[in-house]
Design a protein around this nucleic acid. Sequence first.
DNA 1: TATATAATAACGGAAGTCGATATCGAAAGA
DNA 2: TCTTTCGATATCGACTTCCGTTATTATATA
Lengths: 103, 103
Amino acid sequence: MSNELIHNFLLGFIKLHILYHAQKEPIFGQEFKKELKRHGYDISFGTLYPIFHKLENKGYLKSKQENVNGKIRKYYFITKKGERILKQSKNKAKELFDELFEK
Amino acid sequence: MSNELIHNFLLGFIKLHILYHAQKEPIFGQEFKKELKRHGYDISFGTLYPIFHKLENKGYLKSKQENVNGKIRKYYFITKKGERILKQSKNKAKELFDELFEK
DNA sequence: TATATAATAACGGAAGTCGATATCGAAAGA
DNA sequence: TCTTTCGATATCGACTTCCGTTATTATATA
């Protein structure tokens, strides 16, 4: 669906996107993947889960298992450290990105 | 210098960034790398040159060798096809990106 | 206990990344 | 005209990332 440049962009951008969503509300794999797909972006579980794990290892996310309708879900929440790095990264990324639109 | 999230972002973003600059004026490897570094972003030649080649193979860039002060430089120019993909990609990327700032 | 389901986790080949090194082509000097 | 130098591009091997696919886990229901 998307072109290769956009897919590349998404892959680099995905960690910020995940932290952003985890800041708004707890997220979990299946739903997050679906949400991306609704917007036309497809990313595999083989890519997505290792990214969750890495963000958790770095201390940017924290997870909590929950039983939802008899199914186990692993919800991810953002941490204070995650909020800091997100804020800092957003601004740096914005500098680069805005150049494209010559703001 | 930059954190890992930003470096990831840059790697996904770099192709758009290259096309954007090549649209404004001809670019070449050494100078482009230096320009990034001035802004605090570091990327190796082993990454950069293959990206130029790939963008040229796809027909988004065209190159022309020039002798500048007795040294050979390979200048890259954007093509019509490159302009099209850049325009299209910019807008898609903007959708994703703006969400971070809730515009 | 068997089956279905929704979710996470792991595997392995392909592609990307990087630091380091090699190569290239023109000019300058002997 | 050989060789050195310099700015630049190209390539290499080790490592890491990406992703389609398959495996695993846990629970509900029959």
